[in-house]
Design a protein around this nucleic acid. Structure first.
Lengths: 170, 170
DNA sequence: CGCCTTCCGGAGAATGATTATCGTTAAGGC
DNA sequence: GCCTTAACGATAATCATTCTCCGGAAGGCG
């Protein structure tokens, strides 16, 4: 049952990656295709660790270094975006199937990530950049909080800082 | 000549940190005070490396581990915020002297950081969180681009990705 | 068809930021 | 001042990520 699943599961977007590789004069190798296919085939925000695990599930044994190298190319191609949600490692997501520009809502307890879109953010990016003489290239908005599931499970947000430090100094 | 310089440079906000330490039952040590004073005394977004360098300039020789431990406490206290602007390490800034809530504009070339405030961001945070059933705690908005100085210096933003990957898939 | 050059892939070492360990030493309460 | 406790500092450990090096596949060419 596990004959050549990586071809069976081929994402319809794989050809974009192949095009990019050729365009850049880079070899289209099997490893690069499989790694890209795993990323394209998931709606999650995957860590390298998780990508490696999914590759193993498919019976593919690809070195971590190759995964990192491929992710670098994927990000450069614009097909994939990397994120640091404060976990101590990066997460990757492809940019198909949802709004090309979107922001993230991260649960501070279970680390779940929800995407959302606010068109005004793009406008704010451009306005702020212009006001400061910057040429904007991209932005990153993350909202952290406690998700509904964690609330239902009784998790409490605890604030152990000063009551209102900013206020204290006028 | 280097008798007690750390007291000479004492920031007017240091007492807030002392208050926090006492409130938490943590000892108010000389090292913690000096580290906090360095951070409170700078308007920059300092890395641990830079904090260490400034301590050395003052003639203070404090171990990196202690700096990390103190930064952790400072962040927990709410007096300091940490950031990851994609440099591969964290940067810290105190929350005095400017808007308590503010966002960052980062130059992708020279890594300069400019702060700005948009009151609507706070509103968006609360609205989005409510829509998704989250209890919001904080957010993080970073806009990346090329600053005016780098533009004047002739630096070009180069995009080496696909022309419009998102468009290519509808 | 074999040779040569190039560069990928894989394994493991190296790096760099951050965190843990452990003996020594300073804080804070009495 | 004494005592308990926990911080400090140096160093080792950790963890994600990058580099190194070598065998090997891909493509050009006589």
């Amino acid at each position: 049952m596990a004959t050549a699943e990586h071809t069976a599961a081929a994402s319809p977007y794989l050809h974009l990656f192949r095009r990019y590789l050729r365009q850049q004069g880079l070899p289209v190798t099997q490893q690069r295709e499989v790694v890209a296919d795993v990323v394209f085939g998931s709606a999650d925000h995957l860590s390298v660790e998780e990508i490696e695990a999914r590759l193993k599930q498919r019976g593919e044994r690809i070195g971590k270094a190759t995964i990192y190298r491929t992710m670098e190319i994927l990000v450069r191609s614009g097909l994939v975006e990397d994120h640091d949600f404060g976990d101590g490692f990066k997460r990757y997501e492809h940019l198909f199937g949802q709004q090309p520009v979107h922001e993230h809502l991260v649960c501070t307890h279970c680390r779940k990530v929800v995407e959302f879109r606010r068109r005004e953010i793009q406008r704010i990016q451009d306005e702020v950049a212009r006001e400061h003489g910057f040429i904007p290239s991209r932005h990153r908005l993350e909202i952290y909080g406690l998700c509904a599931d964690c609330q239902a499970a009784g998790v409490q947000l605890k604030y152990e800082g000063l009551a209102c430090p900013a206020m204290a100094v006028g």
